[in-house]
């Protein structure tokens, strides 16, 4: 079976490997450039000549930066071009009737085919993730925004799980619909939909968020690249302070409810007076956030979710194909 799978799909495998190789060359060349820039900026920062360069949005070549962001869609390549046609194209061409009438059970046919495809998807996701993680390590070293969808989704474990999920989604849609074109549409919509749902609705709640209350005058910043979910100010009675447009605020509190001396401090005229500080002490600020050190736990949880989804889809494929009449 392995021989047939390789012979049937070798063009796909070779093309896939070539794409990965090209991507690797671009990333490695560009990565050196980023590392040099980062080193320069870090030295400037350490020498006290300003650290603003470190906070730069994009480091290195902007085209490469765009390419890296575009790897968000990389799982779709395997899902659409490998997964969806895997069963559908064979059913359309009738070649399942060739394969299923050799001295090989349908179960074995399916196991070997899906096995190699899932392995290919794993390699695809892993190589891209390793390259992107390496490329972005200088900027990650700044510990900025590591939970951002544009960053969290590109590095670490999750790209592998996304690839497996996209592949499984392609395979199951092809097996259920028995036609390649509709299977492509379902794979595309399904992948984007599920990824968006998980990112927006599930990810913030993988672990219960930490809420810290603090005195507005002191301020508080969680350590490292934390993920802020919400923040605000509570009034003297514990009621949240509504933030309204076009009202002057001081430390998140409308100036109208504070002593007049706070206004001058708000306008930058010296430190707040004792009366102002006294008034502010009745207010508490809070921040609800996911601590920075949960990054890998979150990666692991999201990896698990997508791997379980992929496994469920493969189980559906097997149940359908092994039971259905040819």
């Amino acid at each position: 079976m392995t021989w047939l799978v390789w012979r049937q799909h070798r063009i796909q495998y070779i093309l896939g490997a070539a794409l990965l190789a090209a991507f690797a060359v671009v990333i490695v060349i560009a990565g050196d450039q980023v590392a040099a820039q980062f080193h320069h900026a870090a030295t400037t920062c350490a020498a006290g000549h300003g650290c603003e360069q470190l906070g730069g949005l994009f480091m290195g070549n902007k085209v490469v930066g765009f390419l890296v962001i575009a790897t968000l869609g990389a799982p779709l390549i395997v899902g659409l071009f490998w997964g969806a046609p895997l069963v559908a194209a064979e059913v359309e061409a009738g070649t399942t009737q060739f394969a299923w009438m050799q001295s090989v059970t349908r179960k074995r046919w399916l196991t070997v085919k899906i096995g190699w495809m899932m392995l290919a998807a794993t390699i695809w996701g892993a190589v891209i993730s390793i390259l992107v993680s390496w490329w972005s390590s200088p900027t990650n070293a700044e510990q900025l925004n590591q939970f951002d969808p544009g960053r969290f989704d590109l590095v670490g474990l999750v790209p592998v799980a996304y690839s497996l999920f996209a592949m499984a989604l392609g395979i199951v849609s092809g097996a259920l619909l028995r036609r390649t074109l509709p299977a492509l549409a379902v794979t595309l919509a399904g992948f984007v939909g599920v990824r968006a749902l998980v990112t927006l609705l599930l990810r913030p709640h993988y672990m219960s968020a930490v809420t810290t209350y603090y005195n507005v005058t002191r301020g508080f910043n969680p350590a490292g690249a934390f993920w802020s979910l919400s923040q605000g100010v509570l009034g003297p009675n514990g009621q949240p302070i509504a933030q309204i447009n076009n009202v002057p605020y001081f430390d998140g509190i409308p100036q109208t409810t504070l002593p007049a001396s706070c206004a001058s401090a708000a306008n930058g005229n010296g430190n707040p007076s004792g009366a102002c500080v006294q008034a502010l002490s009745h207010y508490r600020a809070f921040i609800t956030y996911q601590p920075a050190n949960r990054f890998w736990a979150f990666q692991g949880i999201e990896f698990g979710i997508f791997v379980v989804l992929a496994a469920a889809l493969i189980a559906v494929t097997a149940a359908v194909l092994l039971r259905r009449d040819a």
Binding site: Q8, A93, G94, T95, T96, Q97, F98, M101
Partner: peptide
Amino acid sequence: IGYLAQEIPLY
């Protein structure tokens, strides 16, 4: 069993 479907399925 040797089975040849009507569509003569070959790759």
